[in-house]
Amino acid sequence: MGTVVLDITMSLDGFVATQDHDTERLHAWVFSDAGQTVFGPEVRELMETSWTGAVIAGRRTYDVSGGWGGDPPVPVPYFVISHDVPDDAGERFTFVTDGVRSALEQAQAVAGDGGVYVMGGADIARQFLAAGLLDEIRVHLVPVLLGAGIPLFGGVGPVELEPPRVRCFPRRTELTYRVAGKAA
């Protein structure tokens, strides 16, 4: 089985969204400099070098993205953790209503040797951390202080992490931590 990676964007003061769930400022690095709804060069590079075999997303991420118009950014199966299944779910999406473990099992079954990329908000991240299901945590740290909002790691821990791999980009710093005690 491949690596299970949480991939999430966070402000320098530890928030993944404002109090009203706005993430526009945090995700400015994702889009082209022209502000278009196409992915910028950093995201294309991330996807082109991806080893991902499946993606797990939260329902809010799915809804906010508009289901990516039925064509999500990474061309693999998506598993959306949700309390219900929408009528208009695209064919690339499987809605999982029985928790993070079930979503991971289903994603790993289709990913084969490929990794599983976990995206979404703080709630999904905390559930995966609390269940001990992550091999790596990749944080895209953006140079903004929100001052308040939805914290990424509130209420979870302790979780021991290995020293990070660090990559610097113009609009973010990518920190990748292995969860200590997990097999490589």
Score class of each variant (00 low, 15 high):
residue 1 M to C: 07
residue 6 L to I: 06
residue 7 D to P: 02
residue 8 I to D: 04
residue 8 I to V: 13
residue 9 T to D: 10
residue 9 T to I: 05
residue 11 S to R: 07
residue 11 S to E: 13
residue 13 D to S: 02
residue 16 V to T: 10
residue 17 A to V: 11
residue 20 D to C: 06
residue 20 D to T: 14
residue 21 H to T: 09
residue 24 E to D: 11
residue 24 E to R: 09
residue 25 R to D: 10
residue 27 H to A: 03
residue 29 W to V: 03
residue 33 D to M: 01
residue 34 A to E: 15
residue 36 Q to M: 00
residue 36 Q to G: 13
residue 37 T to G: 12
residue 37 T to K: 13
residue 39 F to T: 08
residue 40 G to K: 04
residue 41 P to N: 08
residue 42 E to N: 09
residue 43 V to W: 06
residue 45 E to V: 01
residue 46 L to Y: 12
residue 46 L to W: 04
residue 48 E to Y: 01
residue 49 T to D: 15
residue 51 W to L: 03
residue 52 T to Q: 10
residue 52 T to L: 06
residue 53 G to E: 06
residue 55 V to F: 04
residue 57 A to M: 01
residue 59 R to V: 06
residue 61 T to Q: 11
residue 61 T to M: 14
residue 63 D to F: 07
residue 64 V to S: 14
residue 65 S to I: 14
residue 65 S to V: 03
residue 65 S to A: 15
residue 68 W to A: 04
residue 68 W to N: 08
residue 68 W to Y: 12
residue 71 D to L: 08
residue 71 D to Y: 01
residue 73 P to S: 02
residue 73 P to W: 02
residue 73 P to T: 13
residue 76 V to G: 14
residue 76 V to T: 13
residue 77 P to N: 04
residue 78 Y to D: 08
residue 79 F to L: 12
residue 81 I to H: 02
residue 84 D to P: 01
residue 85 V to F: 05
residue 89 A to S: 11
residue 89 A to V: 05
residue 90 G to T: 10
residue 92 R to S: 09
residue 92 R to E: 14
residue 93 F to M: 13
residue 94 T to K: 04
residue 94 T to Y: 10
residue 94 T to H: 04
residue 99 G to W: 06
residue 101 R to A: 15
residue 105 E to S: 14
residue 107 A to V: 12
residue 109 A to Q: 08
residue 109 A to H: 14
residue 114 G to P: 04
residue 116 V to M: 07
residue 118 V to D: 01
residue 120 G to N: 07
residue 122 A to K: 08
residue 124 I to S: 09
residue 125 A to E: 08
residue 125 A to T: 10
residue 126 R to W: 05
residue 128 F to K: 11
residue 129 L to W: 00
residue 130 A to Y: 03
residue 136 E to Q: 15
residue 136 E to L: 05
residue 137 I to R: 03
residue 137 I to P: 00
residue 137 I to K: 02
residue 137 I to A: 02
residue 138 R to L: 07
residue 139 V to S: 01
residue 140 H to W: 05
residue 141 L to R: 14
residue 144 V to E: 14
residue 146 L to S: 12
residue 149 G to R: 00
residue 149 G to I: 03
residue 150 I to M: 08
residue 155 G to I: 07
residue 156 V to D: 01
residue 157 G to P: 03
residue 157 G to T: 08
residue 160 E to T: 11
residue 160 E to R: 09
residue 163 P to M: 06
residue 167 R to E: 13
residue 168 C to V: 13
residue 169 F to P: 01
residue 169 F to M: 14
residue 175 L to D: 13
residue 175 L to Y: 13
residue 177 Y to L: 07
residue 180 A to L: 05
residue 182 K to I: 04
residue 183 A to Q: 15
residue 183 A to H: 09
